[in-house]
């Protein structure tokens, strides 16, 4: 941890919920990015977390933009900075709804155009700041305010959509592994062109677990193989340490879901489908890393 700078770019007046992991992630993202950075934020929890006018909790410029427009706005900003001869990091920091759903077109366009920027999706698996409605990134079986009986379909595989654009760097991360996240942001920002990091960000009020369990919840997501930490540099996949272990000897899925109110009363069929899904993901990524696909 000694490599992480002490400078803080989020000061102590955020409007984040207790136990908010996405603001924790942003803290490490900005420590890695440093002061010559601009955040582009569409409608998401971070719209609220950053503070209310005339105050701000952020110590870098934050450009707020409409829900669907983060990647497009960041495109314009990046091109303009480069036109001005400036290397300023342009970082879109968007939720899963703003990325996998309403913002996916703009993201696709920006990736395809080779925009020099870092797009970070912090994924709390629902529309968080509107009170937990289902998004395309909500997992199978999860109860949200618009899936009171549990979501009947699987989580959209955003990373494979991004992968199809062949960005020079993409990675997954999780709020429970801040050093891993810090290193990934550092690496991403050292590479020109479009970069993408997808962070799993457990959400106490949305997932319905006690606030003090927020780190544990992230760890369990990784240890059960539900969330796999990896990097893909110029197409080459590397599974990261914690997930290597989890893929060999995953913790029981029940350890992850039993502590979350959103997965209350899952049917055995849904639980079974969740296990199969994890297994498929693990095998696919293991095969790819071994060069067997």
């Amino acid at each position: 941890m000694s490599t992480i700078p002490e400078e803080e770019y989020i000061v102590k007046c955020t409007s984040a919920c207790a136990g908010c992991s996405s603001s924790l992630c942003l803290r490490y993202v900005l420590k890695a990015a440093g002061p010559d950075s601009v955040l582009v934020v569409p409608a998401c929890c971070t719209s609220v977390i950053q503070g209310i006018y005339p105050g701000t909790a952020m110590n870098v410029p934050v450009y707020n933009i409409a829900f669907a427009a983060a990647a497009a706005c960041a495109s314009g900003m990046s091109e303009a900075f480069r036109a001005l001869g400036r290397k300023t990091n342009v970082i879109a920091y968007a939720g899963d709804g703003g990325t996998a759903d309403i913002g996916v077109q703009a993201l696709s366009g920006a990736l395809e155009r080779g925009t020099d920027f870092l797009y970070i999706c912090y994924d709390n698996e629902a529309y968080g700041n509107t009170g937990m409605q289902r998004s395309g990134a909500t997992p199978l079986g999860a109860r949200t305010t618009t899936t009171p009986g549990g979501k009947p379909t699987a989580k959209k595989d955003l990373d494979r959509i991004v992968e199809a654009h062949n960005p020079p760097y993409m990675a997954t991360a999780c709020s429970a592994y801040p050093l891993d996240l810090y290193k990934k942001v550092k690496k991403a920002l050292s590479i020109p062109g479009p970069k993408f990091i997808h962070i799993l960000a457990p959400c106490p009020p949305g997932w319905r677990y006690p606030t003090e369990k927020t780190v544990e919840m992230g760890k369990l997501a990784v240890k059960t193989g539900t969330w796999i930490l990896y990097e893909r540099e110029y197409g080459r996949l590397t599974i990261n340490g914690p997930s290597k272990t989890a893929m060999r000897r995953p913790a029981p899925l029940e350890d992850y879901i039993k502590g979350q109110g959103r997965f209350k009363n899952l049917s055995p069929e849904i639980l079974d489908r969740m296990r199969q899904q994890i297994e498929r993901n693990v095998q696919r990524l293991a095969r790819e890393e071994a060069g067997a696909c």
């Binding site: 990647a71 497009a72 314009g76 303009a80 155009r113």
Partner: peptide, 27 residues
């Protein structure tokens, strides 16, 4: 001598202009 961004929609065209304009360049 201009950065030409061939965006994927008009929504993104204006969003890109916004992101560029706020850096101070003409758009």
């Amino acid at each position: 001598e201009s950065r030409y961004i061939p965006v994927e929609s008009e929504h993104s065209a204006m969003a890109a202009c916004i992101g560029a304009s706020v850096t101070g360049v003409r758009t």
